[in-house]
Design a protein around this nucleic acid. Sequence first.
DNA 1: AGTTTTTGTTCCCGCGAAGAACATAACAGC
DNA 2: GCTGTTATGTTCTTCGCGGGAACAAAAACT
Lengths: 389, 389
Amino acid sequence: MPHTMTSADLRIHNQVRLLRAVHDAAEPFTRAEAARLLGIGRNTAAALVGELEQARLLHEVPAESSGRGRPTTLLVPHPEGPVAFAVDFREDSWTLASVELGGEVTELATGEHDRTPQVFPDIRETVAQHETGRLAVLGFATSGPISDGHRLHISHLGWDQVELHDLIGDDWPTTVIDNDARLAGLAESRRGALRGMGTAMHFHIDFDIGGTLLLGGDAQRGAHHIAGEFGHMPLTGSPLECMCGVRGCWSLDVGANALVRRFGKEPGYGTGRELAQEVLRRAETGEPEAEAALDDNAAALGRGLGALANALDPEAISLSGMGVELIRLRRELIEERCREGLMEFRRDEPPKIVPGTVGERGPLQGAAEIAWDAILNAEWVKGRLSGGN
Amino acid sequence: MPHTMTSADLRIHNQVRLLRAVHDAAEPFTRAEAARLLGIGRNTAAALVGELEQARLLHEVPAESSGRGRPTTLLVPHPEGPVAFAVDFREDSWTLASVELGGEVTELATGEHDRTPQVFPDIRETVAQHETGRLAVLGFATSGPISDGHRLHISHLGWDQVELHDLIGDDWPTTVIDNDARLAGLAESRRGALRGMGTAMHFHIDFDIGGTLLLGGDAQRGAHHIAGEFGHMPLTGSPLECMCGVRGCWSLDVGANALVRRFGKEPGYGTGRELAQEVLRRAETGEPEAEAALDDNAAALGRGLGALANALDPEAISLSGMGVELIRLRRELIEERCREGLMEFRRDEPPKIVPGTVGERGPLQGAAEIAWDAILNAEWVKGRLSGGN
DNA sequence: AGTTTTTGTTCCCGCGAAGAACATAACAGC
DNA sequence: GCTGTTATGTTCTTCGCGGGAACAAAAACT
């Protein structure tokens, strides 16, 4: 059964709805607008906001008047209210940021790491340095699948079946973690190119393809939290064997891997990415072999997207990482191949294929979203309201 | 914004929760159990049930006592309460059934049709004959994709872009419609092999493969209601061109189509299915060519399921139609190929591959589910409570 | 300066669920 | 067969929430 509901829970329920609305809104809105949005009276809105202000969860600032009527206030995050910390953990570096209610990101620190779990105490220390009593929850983005939300498999670091708890120990703040590609998709869905769409998809193209299906503003996670390995479906008929242990993966034909392999190099995460960038540059300047490599890459991308659109019927598909470059350089080819992969009856409404607008910050922003998701619920807000501070 | 919530709506909200619980339960439960289930007091439960009894939505019957304590009552659908009608519309026949709250199906009538829309008045007339004033909503299951929930494409009947409204006219009861494969999956998810699973998939294997992703007891429908064409992804590298207009579809290697083609016949819907059945029989008796055909079919099925499991991470996958036979005859081969298609790190938790338990009635049962879904909401229940009757 | 428009504020009301106390009807043990 | 135990039904009071009406306030328009 879902949420119990008693008259006493009603207040909290509406307060959570209000906080969620503030968090999700593209622009701040006024108290009167909030009342209309939630379908409640102005008096009730005043009561809700008043308590939330006391709990330092919302703050009211005078709104610049727009037309007639008594001036009202804008609902903004409380300057002393809780914040989420977000960590984007990459292959050789990490970024820590603080994120307000509403999603505003403030970068706090960055660091490098030696690809061993020894980096976690470093991050923990940095978190502690920036902790000002406002930290409520921490969201963590990392590459690779994360089974059941706590067991990491980061193949390019050689981490296999690493338990999250073994990494962070007991003294971390409340921590939620997810895959970077999924979080980038979540960020696009909440605040980027996919905002407001009921069904959409996002793919991050790097060496590999990771992605996620986005439904009603949330990411599909699967039974074991390891959904999203769309790159490991055999969508383009590659005869090669993939690092993942399967033959024919889509990832073998799309992304930096395919570009690099074409030029006889092994896919490595340092120099490999540079080489891929160079291939793209050379394709732009018209070098035939690079152009052909790029064409093949884009065509394979489009073919796969068409196949996935048949199955999942997204309204739009956003891309990040190398996908942005692919759209910039070969939009038509991608769309054509996608169209060819679509069943005939759906070719008049193909999915829009767009570059992500959140950009490089996708995983960080997405980590902040799951962090806020973890606390924007009745239980936490209730504790916050009653428990003082 | 989701549902507004005022103290006046609370009663209705809890009544809807109660009705939903009764509808979804595998076995009837007592009023006291309902109170515990919903997290409300016995007094409140009595009030809720009392009003629902008045509105002829629930009925209380004495429960056989189990152990000590004052005897209580079982909550069952009201004998004069609303029912949903469900229609399973197949290639050359249709079935009409009446479905109680709780999902009990009573078959009312069947008919044949000549593959023209002329059959719809027939069905309408049959509905009218069986209408006893209890009919509240009608759910319709048909093959083929249904764009935006009202535009049908039934290729094997030659119906292209047919508007639902043009078929049923204005004098039908409130009608909801969906694809048969998706509805079969929904039925498995609500009342069959996939019950209680957060993420699962279902595939109906006939000439084609249709399926659906099931999330939290509901089917994923996509942006245009035409998700689920998993059979038209190129998962097995077929070089052939598909009827859908794409090359390499999975459906070309799995299901009756592939069996029939192997024996030099064109896939037709009448004799073709019989031939496919015969091939299965001959494979069972050990005829080598039939066995090879069956092996290929099962292998292709397994390969595709593995690929899909990588992307969507279902807890289990249920099959209907020819899939049931394939599991019975070649379970190990399917599972082996599925395993080989799984990324290595997930091979210790492969998706369970199971035959559907709802069986042939899947589309009908699923149609009833979407019909009930359409009325088990605050608005309808509210009207039912106040509007007399 | 008066009017219009929009929002904030106050007060009272209805309603739904909780909780306590009590009633009821079975079973279990002797 | 009587009594205690257990689970449920019933009644009554209380509390809190949101709605609505009436009024106040602060801007813009005329």
